[in-house]
């Protein structure tokens, strides 16, 4: 019994430490969008990349970035980098992140991009996402996607206009001109993802 517990502990610690790093290939995922249809990463075979953003309805930091997420999609969908927003929170722990609440929010704020629910949290786990919002900029290489940037949208959560570094925009511009992004990972304050209680 004790051994099992110890192993469980390590299994958990290991799972937390896992996740994609810059340069890693991303496995395909298929999740339900707020319009009821399924969305897969493999649907984006003609785009240059995808801006995957783990976000949610309820976190004040996610809300602070909501308009910037909408703007990113407006600006970069047409140039080949659409946004896919993924809500990884367990609605049992955070009722405001239920699928119905997601549908409502996407409608209210006129999301022009998929807002999908990671119900099993397997996608957030595979990516190694830890907080909302948490961005993974993916670059398509043939029929696989590789992680080009992980982190924050910019360096000022409170005031978009005062941001000095717009990390995601700069990374996309670098990729578009055939270069590697200058900054490939950043840290940010955010709300911890509400993981399902395992017990």
């Amino acid at each position: 019994m004790k051994k099992t517990l110890v192993m469980l502990f390590f299994a958990t610690a290991f799972a937390v430490a896992q996740g994609y790093k810059v340069g890693d290939r991303v496995s395909n995922f298929t999740l339900k969008n707020v319009d009821g249809k399924m969305v897969s990463l493999s649907d984006y075979q003609t785009s240059k990349g995808v801006i995957v953003i783990f976000t949610c309805n309820t976190c004040p930091y996610a809300q602070a970035y909501e308009q910037r997420i909408i703007d990113l999609d407006k600006k970069f969908k047409s140039t080949g980098y659409p946004v896919v927003a993924i809500n990884p929170n367990d609605p049992d722990r955070q009722p405001g992140d239920s699928f119905e609440a997601m549908v409502e929010r996407a409608k209210k704020f006129g999301y022009s991009f998929p807002y999908v629910q990671d119900e099993s949290q397997a996608v957030a786990t595979a990516f190694g996402a830890s907080r909302t919002p948490h961005v993974y900029l993916l670059e398509r290489k043939g029929n696989v996607f590789e992680v080009a940037y992980i982190g924050a949208i910019d360096d000022n959560t409170e005031n978009a206009a005062a941001a000095k570094n717009r990390f995601v925009e700069s990374a996309i511009q670098a990729l578009d001109s055939g270069k590697r992004p200058d900054v490939t990972s950043t840290k940010a304050i955010g709300c911890t993802i509400k993981w399902k209680k395992t017990s």
């Binding site: 830890s130 982190g151 360096d155 409170e158 000095k164 570094n165 950043t186 840290k187 940010a188 955010g190």
Partner: peptide, 19 residues
């Protein structure tokens, strides 16, 4: 401080930024 990417590492490099 606005720039979390800067201050998180200054406080502790092992901090992801989650609170």
């Amino acid at each position: 401080e606005a720039d979390a990417n800067n201050y998180i590492d200054a406080i502790d490099p092992s901090w992801s930024g989650a609170i």
